[in-house]
Amino acid sequence: MSAEMITPAWMHRQITASEYESWSAEQCSGIEIVDGMVVVSPSASIRHNRLARVLANALDAAGGAEWNADTDFDVRLQDVPLNNRRPDVVVYRADAIDVVPIRPEHVLLVVEVVSPGSETTDRVVKVDQYARAGIGFYWRVEQAATGLPLVYTHVRDPASGNYRDGPVFTGEVRVAAPFAVEVDLTP
């Protein structure tokens, strides 16, 4: 049995932005679009989802009236070819809550929680894509074997368009930028 017989035809060709926008929320769940191609993400672990939720809640509370933080929705990085990423946490302008799709100019910070199978994408590919898109801050959460998550922070340098490494936190995050937030991620 060939792969074409098992997977839908749309998984073997580039998807346009207008085609993607016609899909249901259920069809868009658990996928990203990279260079127009559908990339299926495996289901996240309970620990992964908890880290994302705890971070989103803390960032949402700290962002005040100006910034919201949420999980599980697309950020449209590019229309042609279509590039939609679904960061684990997105901090976006509160006045853009009804904007669909959310675009980089609405986004202040994205967070990716690294899972088995997403290491290279989260550590290399997304770092470059988010920086090129102009998103100011990128955090990567590594689920260390010790059980204490490591949070790597990155700040976009406007001159180079690349991220500079910021502080690395073990378990507890305390930052002043992009706004003051403290969050304990210990299990």
Rank of each mutant, 00 (worst) to 15 (best):
D79M: 08
V151L: 14
D157R: 04
R132A: 15
R50A: 13
Q14T: 12
A133Y: 02
E172N: 02
Y130H: 11
Y152E: 14
G64R: 09
T170G: 09
V80Y: 06
I15K: 02
P42C: 07
Q129Y: 03
E172Q: 08
R86S: 14
V141T: 03
V183P: 09
I15S: 06
R86F: 02
Y130E: 04
D72N: 15
Q78A: 13
L150T: 10
I135K: 02
Q129I: 03
S22I: 03
V113G: 09
D72H: 11
R47H: 03
S45C: 08
G36C: 12
Y163N: 05
A145N: 08
D122C: 09
A62L: 10
V141H: 03
Y138D: 01
G64M: 13
V107A: 01
Y163D: 01
P104V: 08
I31K: 01
V111E: 05
E172Y: 00
T121Q: 08
P178A: 07
L59K: 06
E26M: 07
Y92S: 15
I6N: 03
D122Y: 04
P187R: 09
G166R: 09
E21Y: 02
P167V: 04
D60P: 08
S43E: 02
N68R: 15
Q143T: 02
I33Q: 02
D157Q: 04
S160C: 04
N162C: 12
